[in-house]
Amino acid sequence: MTTETVSLRAVEKVFPNGVRGLAPVDLSVRRGELITLIGPSGCGKSTLLKLIANLHAPSTGSVSWWGGNFSSVGTEGRRLSFVFQDPTLMPWSNVATNVRLPLDLDGVPRVEAEARVMPALEQVGLSHAAGRFPAQLSGGMRMRVSIARALVTKPDLLLMDEPFGALDEFTRNKLDEDMAELCKRDGLTTIFVTHSLYEAAFLSSRVIVMAAGPGRIHAEYLIEPSMPRDENFRLSDEFSRICRDLNALLTEVSHLNGQKESA
């Protein structure tokens, strides 16, 4: 089996209103990688992620998943899950039904689907809330349900679009730690969009720094994946150094944008 999970070749996106969201981009994601996309607003991070999720079609170029086209996605060993910026839960259904949704849509038999819900909820520490409704949960808990819904399909590729952006710092750090542990334990290939360089530094094995106008890849930054992602890592000199480096790259990107705007 190919180790390349997803591959973009000269993928460009021009929206129907003529806005060029993404200049031709080449990107290859290998199995087990945790990649973050970081950059200023409008740099095409979410567009790139939606192209990978097949929610947008590329204007030119091609995307391949496990070496094939999207029709094979969803089969054994080629499962893809997406976690949106908002929890996007169904308010009329309880937590268990929300988590079971992708299995129902994929046609998994009811008994098997129900049996998989509780382990997914346990993974995000919400097994006690299976019967509750989204309106009865806090923002952090709703996001955890959204993650459980993504994990219940046992994905091979997990796409996360600024999932913790609306949460407070403490909840966000906790969820980042949980995510890092989950991805490491299950060898999950993950592409994570964030505005926070600290989040990118903490989670990633590779950071893709993007520039705007049009969106493009500016730089790639590698981080030793074997490093334990815990509170000690966050307090370490190594973490500070990574954050400084990423900050320097983001400053470069913002200068590029500034030059472009003044030109």
Binding site: L55, G74, L80, F82, Q85, D86, T88, L89, L101, P102
Partner: peptide, 14 residues
Amino acid sequence: VDPGLESFFRMHKA
């Protein structure tokens, strides 16, 4: 309809 939820349904080929 919530656009995010609609995308989720589309992604799962509903």
